[in-house]
Amino acid sequence: MDFSWLPAYGGMFFEAFFLTLKLALMAIATGTVLGVAAGILLTSRFRLIRGIVRVYVELFRGSPLLVQLFMVYFGLPHVGVNISLNMTTVLVFTLYGGAYIAEITRSGIEAIPKGQWEAAESLGLNYFQTMGHVIFRQTLKIAFPSLVGFYIGMIKDSSLASVIGYSELVKKSQTIMNMTARPFETYIVVGLCYFIICFPLSKLVSYIEKRSEAK
């Protein structure tokens, strides 16, 4: 193996690394906000609201992320809706992530014993006060490992954005590979970049789970 070419192309890897990190963080942030809201609505007493949100969740959980990227970036212009590359990636990853996070949130809420709701009601708390001060805090604790696990998956799935031209790690690595004729070494560097992002998150989950078990 020969990595003598790496210093000359380190800047390109550095730029692509932060573009990947930027996409992942934006998608995680917006997807979490959307997913938490949708997850709460999935537990609503109103059947119509639950039905509408359920359609969204099943649509984006039941179709491949790659197809969603193609549909938005290449499909929408055919119906007169033009959307930029950056907006496409953030929008699709937000909707995709939100659908999965909605299910994680819903399962966390439904895991809370009904007695918690009844106790809050007996104290005179309304629905929003109960959700904010009693239920949601416990839901976060239950759902946190699953959420972080999904975040790690989203970071790795960001590589799919390369197929529509987004210059993240995989897309940039293809350019570097063509210039250096070193595909194996190039993908080793790409793998290490993803490892640098994902490994601390996986260790964080393990640490929190061990602390929870100790308690």
Rank of each mutant, 00 (worst) to 15 (best):
S146N: 08
A120Q: 09
W5C: 11
S159G: 11
Y207K: 04
L66G: 05
Y73V: 09
F150M: 11
G98V: 05
G124I: 03
A214Y: 08
C193A: 04
G124C: 07
Y166G: 13
G115P: 03
A214P: 09
L69R: 01
A119R: 13
F60C: 08
L76C: 12
S202C: 05
A214M: 08
V92K: 04
Y100I: 13
G51A: 00
I40K: 06
K210A: 01
R137P: 15
A24M: 15
F14H: 07
P64Q: 05
M87Q: 14
F93D: 01
S158D: 04
Y9E: 07
L23G: 03
M154C: 10
W117F: 09
R182H: 11
V92Y: 06
S84Y: 09
A102N: 11
P145H: 10
T139F: 02
F150V: 05
L66H: 03
Y127V: 14
G11L: 05
V92A: 09
L69F: 03
A119S: 13
E58S: 01
L59N: 01
S212Q: 06
M12F: 03
G75L: 02
V189M: 14
R106C: 07
R61D: 01
P7M: 12
A8R: 06
G62I: 10
T89S: 12
V53F: 01
T43G: 04
S212F: 02
L204I: 07
I188M: 04
K210F: 00
G98L: 00
F17Y: 08
R45P: 03
G62T: 10
M87V: 12
L91S: 14
I188H: 12
V55Q: 00
F3H: 06
V57P: 03
G98F: 00
G10C: 04
I101D: 10
Q174H: 05
V170Q: 13
T94Y: 00
G75Q: 06
R54C: 02
Y56N: 02
T105F: 07
A161S: 12
P64W: 00
Y9R: 03
F199L: 05
V55K: 02
S107D: 15
I109S: 08
V36Y: 05
A24S: 10
S122G: 14
K172V: 14
G51I: 01
G149D: 14
L21V: 02
Y127K: 04
K114E: 01
T89D: 10
F70S: 02
N178F: 15
T130G: 11
S107G: 13
F46K: 01
L65E: 02
E118V: 07
K172W: 09
Y187W: 10
I164L: 15
V92H: 06
F195K: 09
T20S: 02
Q174Y: 08
L19A: 09
Y73Q: 10
G108C: 09
D157S: 13
E15N: 06
G11D: 04
M1N: 11
Y207N: 08
L41I: 03
V189Y: 15
M26W: 08
Y187L: 05
A24C: 07
Y100M: 02
K203N: 06
V57A: 01
